[in-house]
Amino acid sequence: MASIHLQNIVKRYGGFVGVQNMSLEIADEEFLVLLGPSGCGKTTTMRMIAGLEVPTDGKIMIGGEVMNDVDARDRDVAMVFQGYALYPNMSIYENIRFPLRMRGVPASEHDARIRQAAEMVELGAYLDRKPAALSGGQRQRAALARAVVRQPQVFLMDEPLSNLDAKLRQSMRVQIKHMQRQLKVTTVYVTHDQIEAMTLADRIVIMNKGAIQQVGTPDEIYSDPANTFVAGFIGSPPMNLIEGTAQGGRFNAPGVSAPCPSNVQGKVTLGIRPEDCRIGGDNVQGLVYGVEPTGDTTYLTVLAGTKKIEVKAARDYRSDIDVSIGITFDPARLYFFGQDGERIRGVA
C-alpha cells in the first residue's frame, strides 16, 4: 500500500507534448480515475507510473520513494490492460501463477494464493482452461486475479472494461470497486467512460490535451465544473453550453434569455444541465427538433436559433417536430464561463 506523488511530470515525443507539467497527489488506498477523451495523456500518465514510459521531466514517487530510475518490474505495481494481456500459451492457473514464479514467492504458497485470487473473481472453476477458451468477461477477471495475486503496492487499470458489453461492464464495475475496497490497494484507473469514472472513483482527474482540467470528487466534478471542457464532458447528455452576451444582469443569445449575476459581462457561455430545464416558460423560445424516449425518461431537443438545447422531460412527454415550445432554466443551476472557457464564479 502506498501513496503516489507526481511532481511536474512532462512527457514529450519529439515536438508533440503528451503530458504537460502535471502534478498530482494520490493518497494511500485511494481509488483515482483519470478521465478524458482519447489522446489526452491519461494512458501515458499511467504508463509512466508503471515504468513502461520514461517521463521527459519531473519526478514520480511511490510510497515516498523516487521511482524514475527504477525498472518497471521492480516498482511493485500490477497493471490490468485493455486487451487483458493474458499469456495465451499458459492455462489460467499458470497465468495467475506467473507473477509469483517471477518474484520468487516460495512454491509452497503458490497454490493457496492462486485459488484465493481466483475465488475473489469467481473464476475457480476455470483454472485449467487456456485464455482462448474463456469469454471476454472471464478473461478480464483472470487478468484481475493475476494482478491481485501478488498483493502489489499499486493497481493500475488501463480501460479494463472497454472491450466488454454494456451489461457485463456494469457487473465488472461493481466487482472491481468491491475488490479495491476489500484489498485497500491504491488504484489508478484510466477510462474515457464518464459513467465508470463517476461510479468508481474516490476522486476524478479530468484531463485534456495533456493537462489536468479539474481534480475532485465525482460530486464536485458534476455540480461544480471548473471550465467548459469539464462541463461538456461530464453528464449524459452533457451540459448545454450556449454562447451569448451578458449585460446588466441579463444573458442573451438567439432564442435564449436568462438572468445572470451582475459580475458576468460581455461575451460569455451559459451552461445548464438537461435535468435543470423545465418545459414551459420563456428562458428559451424555440421549436421541437426531436424527442427521444428511453423508457425511464424522455430527452427533448429544442432548436433555439441555430443552437440545439437538450432537455430532460417526463417519461411520458411526446411531441411532433417543429412545434414551438418554451423552456425555463432553474436559476440556481446556471453556470457562466468566460471567453477563455474558465468558470466565472458568482459574487452576485
Binding site: A50, A72, D74, R75, V77, F81, F98, M102, R146, R150
Partner: peptide, 8 residues
C-alpha cells in the same frame, strides 16, 4: 509489458 510488470 504485462510480463514485465509481473516481474519477468
Amino acid at each position: 509489458e504485462a510480463a514485465r510488470l509481473d516481474g519477468a
